[in-house]
Simulated assay, not measured.
Amino acid sequence: MEGWAQKNTVLTAGFAQIPKGTTLYEVSTIVGCVLIIDADHDLICDASFTFVMEKTSEFLVALLVGKSIANGMKEITPVVQERFLGPGQGAVLQAIRAAVDRYHEKKNLS
């Protein structure tokens, strides 16, 4: 069992459309992002993406785990822009942002 399962965690998801004309669009029209967040510390514990190639997902997960979302995307955006140079980078960021925003909306309602 994952270590995050013993914490106060929540699962949130976000999706974004992949731009037409990219190779990635030919495989899938959307990218999905699932984040497991430690709600006590606003830290990403784990993540998953809907990419066909597992290495892409593994790489993005490694970039995100341990990142704080206390200030939205401030800690995440520069890392993804600098290190993920694949097609659909904007869609990936949009999917992550949608998941983070959903988390903050729910947290602010509590």
Rank of each mutant, 00 (worst) to 15 (best):
V31I: 14
T9R: 04
F59L: 03
T12A: 05
L109Q: 15
S68G: 11
Q6C: 03
T56S: 04
T77C: 00
C45K: 12
H41A: 14
V52Q: 09
F15E: 11
V80A: 00
T12Q: 10
L60Q: 05
R97N: 09
N71Q: 09
V61W: 03
W4R: 02
V52R: 10
V31K: 05
K20W: 00
S68C: 10
V27K: 03
T29A: 13
A5L: 10
F15P: 03
N71G: 02
E26A: 11
V52W: 11
R102Q: 10
D46T: 13
P78A: 01
S110G: 08
R102F: 07
L24C: 10
M53Q: 13
K55F: 13
T9V: 03
W4S: 01
C33P: 08
E54D: 12
A39Y: 07
R83I: 05
I30D: 11
V52T: 13
A16W: 06
K55R: 15
V79N: 05
I76V: 11
P87E: 12
T50L: 13
L85M: 08
A39T: 12
K74R: 00
I18C: 06
G3K: 13
E54R: 09
T29D: 12
G90H: 10
V27I: 11
T22H: 03
H104P: 06
V61H: 01
S68I: 08
G90I: 02
K20S: 04
T12R: 11
I37N: 01
L11Q: 13
Y25G: 06
L24N: 13
Q17A: 08
K106D: 02
V10E: 10
I76C: 07
L60K: 02
V61P: 02
K7R: 15
L109H: 14
V100H: 06
P87L: 08
E54M: 07
E54L: 09
G3F: 14
V27T: 09
E105D: 07
K106V: 04
M73C: 10
Q94L: 08
S48C: 04
A70V: 14
I44Q: 00
V100L: 04
T12I: 08
